[in-house]
Write a protein that binds this DNA or RNA. Structure first.
Lengths: 235, 235
DNA sequence: CGCAACATTGAGACATATCAAGGAGAGTGG
DNA sequence: CCACTCTCCTTGATATGTCTCAATGTTGCG
């Protein structure tokens, strides 16, 4: 892994990540304990069950948080986009694996350093709390999808959800992208939705045939009828 | 709803809930904005989608957090035991319904009061952060169960999980209860696991026939072979 | 005791998984 | 620029687990 040197002031997520809580002198305190790091697509930052040595704030790219079951099966339990925070502060075990889906840049902290710093900076902890509460809400929404939706509803709501998250990233006002590239392949969509790759593929094709979405290349999706898709996403 | 008057010092969760962060004068500040309240089984504290007027800390009983889908179906996305915190501070919408499963007692706060108080008491926010991080972890574990486990694995892991949470409550050292009463009926177990009531029933019967658990009455479960049950819970 | 709510059991339908084959993209080397 | 190849995606046929519908059994309360 390669350490990059980027000034916090020039950071693309300066105003959105938890460090937005800090200014001037405090920020440079934080900078002293961080390491800006590049993670190539496919590489894993932390492993499920390991001692949690690090936490990190994402500045570019997308990561997945996964839990693996006895056999080869895995469930993706979270996604981390720029400005999101990964890892569990104040706790010594990591309970999910964090892996880069695309080439990624993160601000990494030794967990212990971060914990100490955070305890002395309530504003930072407050930002982190808000972010964690939002993430919890998202996880619960996701649980509903996993527990009570059909394959077709899962895929529809997934497409809508992702379009919103990717739009938030590019952040041109409140525009929602209607055409975007998925940062992952079919297997990973399946692991997000608790389905098999074949079922995801079939449902994608079905949505395409209904004229709700367009597919080009392997990963590009176009939403042709957002309203109709929203209807298909409801139970 | 009936307002009770219980001194914080005598509170059964005094040392476990987020208010454990406070002592003496700060605690009495918190006491001034709280209302101790009794909620009978079946009654709902807050509704999904409503403006979030209140947050609360549970002192006795069990509550469920649910999300409902278009039709009658619902998914339980969380359980709140004594010392747990419900509601979303610093945010104006409630995204899940909170309902008492058993007779319940909670410390209720107007959200605005709580927010203001919390911002002035970093120790309290810190406790809340730790609790929220733990809850997020639990939600993710639950997602894995919903997405990638079979009905039989779901029920087995559920029984183990509940036995641990109920034991934590009675808190006699590190004893784990082998015989306990579920605070909910079959339909609610189904809503937790993303199954139908019939499937839950069949799996319970099956575990019973395998000699892993014993069932008596409608809600009492006895774990006869914890190790075997753990094996059945893995994928 | 008798009732109402809840739980269990069975038979059949249906959705998704599994197994298996074929097709399209993207990168590589000629 | 085209053939080659590897990986990923799509499609089809069948198997299977869970849901649905329906009936029966049980619990606990008035």
């Amino acid at each position: 892994m390669e350490t990059l040197s980027v000034a916090c002031e020039a950071c693309p997520v300066r105003n959105k990540a938890i460090c937005a809580a800090l200014s001037g002198p405090e920020l440079s305190g934080l900078r002293q304990i961080r390491r800006h790091q590049f993670i190539p697509a496919g590489q894993t930052l932390v492993w499920e069950g390991d001692d949690a040595f690090v936490v990190a704030s994402v500045t570019a790219g997308v990561l997945k948080l996964t839990k693996s079951l006895g056999d080869g099966k895995e469930q993706i339990v979270g996604l981390a986009f720029p400005a999101d925070f990964v890892g569990r502060p104040f706790h010594d075990k990591t309970m999910s694996t964090v892996t880069a889906l695309t080439d990624t840049e993160v601000c990494v902290f030794r967990r212990e350093d971060f914990d100490n710093f955070a305890r002395e900076h309530p504003e930072l902890e407050h930002k982190l709390l808000e972010r964690t509460l939002a993430e919890l809400e998202r996880a619960r929404e996701w649980m509903t999808r996993l527990g009570r939706k059909t394959a077709s509803e899962k895929v529809s709501s997934f497409v809508l959800d992702i379009s919103e998250r990717l739009s938030a990233e590019t952040c041109h006002g409140s525009t929602v992208l209607d055409r975007f590239e998925l940062p992952f392949g079919r297997q990973q969509v399946a692991d997000i939705l608790g389905l098999t790759i074949e079922t995801v593929s079939r449902q994608m094709t079905s949505l395409k045939r209904q004229g709700l979405i367009g597919l080009s290349g392997r990963r590009t999706i176009q939403i042709l009828n957002r309203e109709g898709l929203a209807k298909a996403a409801e139970s």
